[in-house]
Computed example of a mutant assay.
Amino acid sequence: MVKVSSASVPATGEAAPLPSLVERAGGAARFAWDEYFYAVHHNPHTQKAYLRAVRRFLDWCEGQGRELPTITPGQVGQYLVGLGGSPAKRNLALSALRGFFDRLVNRHVVVLNPATSVKGVKDQVVEGKTPEITVEQARTLLASVDTGHVVGLRDRAVLATLAYTACRAGAAAKLRLGDFQHDGSQSVLRFQEKGGKSREIPVRHDLDGFIRAYVEAAGVGGQPKDSPLFRAAVNGTSRTLTGNPLTSKRICELVKRRLKDAGLPSRLSPHSFRVAAITDLLTQGVPLEDVQYLAGHAEPRTTGLYDRRQKKVTRNIVERISI
C-alpha cells in the first residue's frame, strides 16, 4: 500500500502552503495551481476533493525524489494501484491529476501529461447503494410528525419536499422564499442543483398546503425573497426558529431523528426518498426522460441507478425457493 500524507486540507478560500514540488517548479507552476483549483473549479466539494487528491500524490512524489517535469505515466499508475480504496476513489484521483497536469502542460511547466495514458479502474454499477423507503414507510413517517408547533410543520414540509419532488437534501437546503412561487396556474419550487443547474418542479396540492402552513406559522411570508425558506431551530429541543437556513447536514439529522421517532429503519436517509420517487414513477410507466428531468440527471443511465424494480423482482423470486 502506498503511504500518502494525511495532512488536512484547508477549507476552500483559505491560504495554504503550496506543495514543495510546485514551489520549486517556479512561477508558471504556481500560476497553474491557482488557476486549476480556484478558477476552474467553483464547486466547493469538487475543489476540496481534487485538492486533497493532488496534494497526496505530490507528497508521494516528494518521497520518491521526483520533480514535476520528471513524473512518468508509470509512476502515476503505480501510485493509483497502491492507493487502494474503491474504484470511485482512485478514478477521482486520476481525474484530478489529469486536469492538474493539463494545466501544467498549458503553462509549459511539463512537456507531456503523465496521467493522460493511465487507465482508470472499471467501476460497473447497475444499481445504487442508497436504500429505498417504501410508500408505506414514507406515509407512516409523514403521519408521525407532530404538527402542533412550527418546528413540526417545518419538518413535515421538508420531508414532503424530499418525497414529492425527488430533490437532494442540498437542493432543499438552498431554497429561498422566492423559490416557492405561483406561475399563474400552479405553485412551483425552483431548485438550484449540482453543476449550477436550475429547475422548476410543480408542487402537488398536499405539499403546497404543507409549505404554506409552515410559512404562515413561522411568520416569514413577508420577508425578503432571498431569505431562507426552511429555517434552523434555536437548538435541538427548541420549538423556535432562527433566521438561519437549515443546512443539508441538519436536514439529514432531521430525517434520522424523525425516522427514529416513527420506528423506521435507521439506514434510510434523505436520498431514500429520491430512490422511492424514481422507482415509483418508473413502475407506473412514466417515461424515463420525464423521470430523468424530475431527478435533474444529465444522463438516463444515472436515473437508472435509482431504479429498484429489479430488486423487487429478485426478492419475489427468492421467496419462492422451496428449501
Rank of each mutant, 00 (worst) to 15 (best):
K48N: 04
L241I: 11
G148Y: 01
A138I: 04
H42S: 11
A232C: 05
G26Y: 04
Q124C: 00
A49T: 10
S8M: 10
K256H: 15
Q223T: 07
K48T: 11
D155C: 09
K260T: 15
V286I: 15
G120E: 06
R315I: 08
P69R: 14
A11I: 00
S86Y: 00
R176I: 02
G65H: 06
P73S: 08
L305D: 10
R301Y: 11
A276V: 03
R204N: 04
G195Q: 15
V4Q: 03
I278P: 02
H108W: 02
Y293F: 15
V9A: 07
D102G: 07
P228G: 13
Y214N: 05
I321N: 04
N43R: 10
R320Y: 08
L18T: 01
D123Y: 01
V158G: 09
R212P: 01
A171M: 02
P87L: 00
P69S: 03
A232I: 09
K119Q: 02
D307I: 13
A25C: 04
G195R: 14
T130F: 01
R199Y: 04
P245Y: 13
A53E: 12
A29G: 05
A262C: 14
L80I: 01
E35R: 15
R309G: 12
I211W: 05
A32Q: 04
T314I: 14
Y214F: 13
R66C: 01
A93W: 00
R308H: 15
F230C: 09
T247C: 08
H108T: 06
D102Y: 04
Q75H: 07
A172K: 10
R301S: 15
L246E: 09
T70C: 01
R30P: 05
F273I: 12
T147S: 09
G184H: 11
G82C: 11
G148C: 02
V275M: 10
K122A: 06
H271C: 06
R257Y: 04
R154S: 06
L264D: 14
D123C: 02
G263Y: 15
F230Y: 10
P10R: 13
L281I: 03
G209I: 12
Y36Q: 07
A213K: 14
S95Q: 12
P69A: 03
D261F: 15
P287M: 07
R103T: 01
Q192K: 03
D208G: 02
A169R: 15
K129E: 11
P287T: 05
R176C: 14
R212W: 08
G243Y: 08
V109I: 03
V2I: 15
P224R: 08
V2S: 11
G74N: 05
K312H: 13
E200D: 14
R239E: 10
Q292G: 08
R90W: 01
S238T: 03
F230S: 07
R168E: 08
Q186T: 06
L80N: 03
E289T: 09
R231G: 12
R239N: 09
Y164P: 02
I317M: 06
P17S: 06
S185W: 12
V151Y: 01
S144F: 07
V4N: 00
V135I: 05
G77E: 14
V234G: 05
A32S: 13
V158A: 09
L80M: 03
H271M: 11
L51C: 02
L80Q: 04
A15C: 01
R30E: 14
V188K: 13
V313F: 11
